[in-house]
Design a protein around this nucleic acid. Structure first.
Lengths: 340, 340
DNA sequence: TCATTTTTTCTAATCGTTTTCAATAGGCAT
DNA sequence: ATGCCTATTGAAAACGATTAGAAAAAATGA
């Protein structure tokens, strides 16, 4: 009766420990949470019982009573994006330091599934959520963030009003493009994604602003919309280089795309870094593995993760949550692909 | 009093819904779980109340009562290994089909942290765990797996006795090496990792067996122990190619390593695919992105994930859990790096 | 010694659900 | 009207922990 079996496995509860140690459940609980007002005797007896029975407390009971789980959920699109790793490391370090665990779940870029995962927040299965690639419309997210502990990282919503840690993607796009312009380039291609994440929109806007400022007319034939793959880069580059007025530089919103594009140019007789320059984004591992190495925008992944976690946890403890947007500094990494 | 506030946010419980709908909590619960024995009237009233109050059930209460969470935890080293993505997709599809969610947590290759994460299983915060890169010693894992729903995937323990879905890594190492031998190669290098995961041990054993079978003497100067990086490949290749009796083929236990090695050879005047052949492992995205493209071993990631999740869930429902090891078929992908 | 304070312990309420079991209402046949 | 069956309901007991508040035990002071 007390030993509820399930699949041949036994459930040991705090009551069993109490009985074994000859104390009340309250005492067991106090020992387990190292409260001060408990005798050494009791501590020993309880620890012995715990050891003997192989007891570990049921978090569901504890969490229900305390109404907190000490767990934070990071919602990502997929584990494929390599820079998530550092972001998550940052989050983990920050969370762990305050006794929180980080769990990860993937939406597979499906807004419905993203909503389903948010259900874990509404249903108190986690204390807070960090969205690393929100696909749900921003109005909904904003609305929910008033009731629940949520934050956005790496991306931003098109409106303010929710805690957000990211970089200034518009500025980064501007910086990269301006750098190419500074190298004397006049026809600069852009490879971006059809699916509009806010970051890609921002990067594109930065690209346009740089052109504008340099009085270079915007040419829609030099803008390619694809996906996040190397193939996109290859195809875009093929298309660009078949124009009679070919670009002399290409900025892509991701390194993977850039690498695909650069490989194509390289294989088709163009001197990368001279005939044509390439600028990527993300500074992934592979961006400096092959010659010519790729110039790229580096964003502080670890720091973004650490920051967002710290601020989210602070929000959870506070009555008036911080809903600011924090833009951490990015930097340009210059390598052979821009002739450096 | 009933409206417990926390950080300015309100908690609505099933009681509030019951009051609003003028029914008992039991009825609300029944409606929420679409039980049959409840009148249409009640259904409507409850749904209206749920809508009005913006109620969502507290999973902690539910899970505690039901003593299950419908959640499975995938424990990985880090999100960096790109093939995890497909494995996790497979797990998700299998789990979702049976009403389970998949959560992911990273150990950062720290056995202690891995144990901490297993605590979520012991403490009933998840129903089952899949270990994708176990670092805890196998005896402990085996012991725990008798009490809790656990499985291993992608790797295997050095002993049997726990549900495990993987490929035959020994065989795969043998196949790759044999293929190189079949191409007439006699001096075959191996690049592997210093840290011994079971899979790398197995792959190395396969390498040795292939040599033995072909009566090629094992030469320790042709075996390099490094880490999972491209740099390791580069350094190993540099070392190998400075020998007076240089290898005419190199097998690495991972594509990343192979790519580093291949790049080095390529940049130092060796004709990859002729002078020297390369065989990798994992079939990562980048393995076919650059010329010469890398020959590699492909393992069925998605299927492994799907299989392990299905079998684990089956185990959780069963009184006599399946503790077999399943080895799914791998395949060789032949490209330019082996002269194909 | 006895009153008083301090420390330690226990009983019981609580968290938010699900679910058993008993109760009620309604329909139908007699 | 009476009894019987069925379809809905609600009250209350779980689930396993934490934590007030009361009670008991131990320590202190006169």
């Amino acid at each position: 009766m007390l030993e509820q079996r399930r699949g041949g496995r036994v459930n040991i509860t705090i009551k069993d420990v109490a009985r074994e140690a000859n104390v009340s459940v309250a005492t067991v609980s106090r020992v387990l949470n190292n409260k001060s007002n408990v005798s050494d005797e009791a501590v020993h007896a309880v620890n012995r019982a715990v050891e003997k029975l192989g007891y570990s407390p049921n978090f569901l009971g504890r969490d229900l009573r305390k109404s907190e789980t000490k767990r934070i959920l990071a919602i990502i699109g997929s584990t494929e994006e390599s820079f998530y790793n550092d972001v998550l490391r940052g989050m983990q370090d920050a969370c762990f330091a305050q006794g929180y665990d980080v769990l990860i779940a993937t939406t597979r870029n499906d807004p419905e599934h993203e909503m389903h995962l948010l259900g874990m927040l509404f249903s108190k299965a986690v204390d807070g959520v960090v969205l690393l690639a929100p696909k749900i419309d921003s109005k909904t997210i904003l609305e929910l963030s008033k009731k629940y502990a949520m934050a956005v990282c790496l991306e931003r919503l098109d409106t303010e009003g929710i805690l957000c840690v990211t970089i200034n993607n518009e500025r980064a796009g501007y910086d990269a493009t301006s750098y190419l312009i500074g190298k004397g380039r006049k026809r600069i291609g852009l490879i971006t994604t059809k699916i509009r994440s806010q970051s890609s929109v921002d990067r594109e806007n930065g690209y346009r602003r740089a052109l504008e400022e340099a009085k270079i007319p915007y040419d829609e034939r030099l803008v390619y919309y694809g996906d996040y793959s190397a193939e996109t880069g290859t195809r875009a580059c093929e298309e660009f280089l078949s124009l009679d007025r070919k670009p002399d530089a290409i900025f892509s919103i991701s390194d993977i795309i850039s690498l695909g594009a650069m490989t194509y140019a390289n294989n088709h007789g163009f001197k990368v870094g001279k005939d044509i320059l390439f600028f990527g984004f993300d500074n992934i591992l592979f961006s400096h593995m092959f010659m010519p190495r790729l110039s790229t925008v580096d964003q502080p992944c670890y720091l973004q993760g650490k920051t967002v976690a710290e601020k989210l946890i602070a929000n959870m403890k506070s009555d008036e949550p911080d809903t600011s947007t924090y833009m951490l500094p990015h930097s340009l990494i210059l390598r052979e692909s821009t002739g450096d």
